[in-house]
């Protein structure tokens, strides 16, 4: 017999029950997430003249712009082991996936305010649906990237097999930050705007458009940036570079996992308070 009990007591006063509900919500999220993902996907592209071709146009445009910049020799930020356009393209695509992952939870939930105040759907479903979109965009970027690798004759190594792990870590890091900021972000508008600004600044402190600096003040900041090892290792694995990641990579991964689970559970605790305060 399904028994439901509501009281003003904090959820953590019954931790086992709280975790059980969390796992149950995850389980029922899957079909809902699929429906939502499908709906967003179809709805987004059905209204376009070019339809599903639009999936490839943004990464293609990015690639062509950077290749043009390189060949016109406007930008020179240092020599790289692999051809510069590939270096940048890989970095930019990885960065875009990362930023999408960071903004995904907050954006999905803010966008679905009218749903979460009226239907009792697990919020995890909304985030998973958003994750589906991220993966799809990533796939499109990888296809364009591989075309570029082929064009520039960059060899692919066996460490390509580690790429899925690397990408998972990239997305996990992004989402864990995103979920951490979501409770406050649902209440205060500043957070979403602030994320944009911080990410823009972080872009320049990550070795995306320039090779890793060896000395100088910026070298210190780049080496302290937790995203550096993530982007770097992913780039290496995708373009046949170094196999072994730095120690910092493992540190970032471990911290991300911890942040992810605690942020998720923290959000679940905050959920009823968020629902009662946000306007639908």
């Amino acid at each position: 017999m399904n028994q439901i009990y509501y009281s003003p007591q904090p959820e953590l006063s019954e931790p086992k029950h709280f975790l059980k509900l969390a796992l149950l919500d995850l389980k029922i999220s899957k079909p809902i997430a699929w429906q939502l993902f499908r709906k967003n996907f179809i709805s987004q592209y059905r209204q376009n003249f070019l339809g599903y071709l639009w999936i490839f146009l943004p990464p293609l445009a990015t690639a062509l712009i950077w290749i043009f910049l390189f060949y016109s020799k406007i930008i020179y930020l240092g020599s790289t082991e692999i051809p510069y356009p590939i270096y940048v393209l890989t970095g930019v695509f990885l960065w875009q996936t990362f930023t999408e992952s960071v903004t995904c939870p907050l954006q999905q939930l803010l966008f679905s305010k009218h749903l979460i105040t009226k239907f009792k759907i697990p919020h995890e479903a909304l985030v998973i649906a958003g994750l589906g979109a991220i993966l799809f965009n990533l796939l499109a970027r990888l296809i364009i990237l591989f075309l570029g690798l082929f064009y520039f004759q960059v060899g692919l190594g066996w460490n390509l097999l580690l790429a899925p792990i690397g990408l998972a870590v990239l997305i996990l890091t992004g989402i864990s930050i995103g979920v951490l900021l979501t409770p406050l972000g649902m209440l205060y508008q500043d957070i979403l705007n602030g994320i944009g600004i911080v990410l823009n600044a972080l872009f320049f402190l990550t070795p995306i458009i320039y090779p890793i600096p060896q000395n100088g003040a910026i070298s210190r900041m780049v080496s302290l940036n937790p995203l550096t090892p993530i982007i770097n290792s992913n780039r290496n694995w995708l373009t046949g570079g170094e196999l072994m990641p730095d120690l910092s990579f493992f540190i970032v991964v471990s911290v991300s996992i911890i942040v992810f689970f605690s942020s998720w559970l923290f959000y679940r605790l905050a959920k009823p308070y968020i629902i009662e305060r946000i306007s639908s």
Partner: peptide, 15 residues
């Protein structure tokens, strides 16, 4: 329905 938490009291639903 369980969308928001009560501030006092309790609710028990069997089903």
């Amino acid at each position: 329905y369980g969308l928001i938490k009560p501030d006092t009291g309790e609710i028990r639903i069997r089903g």
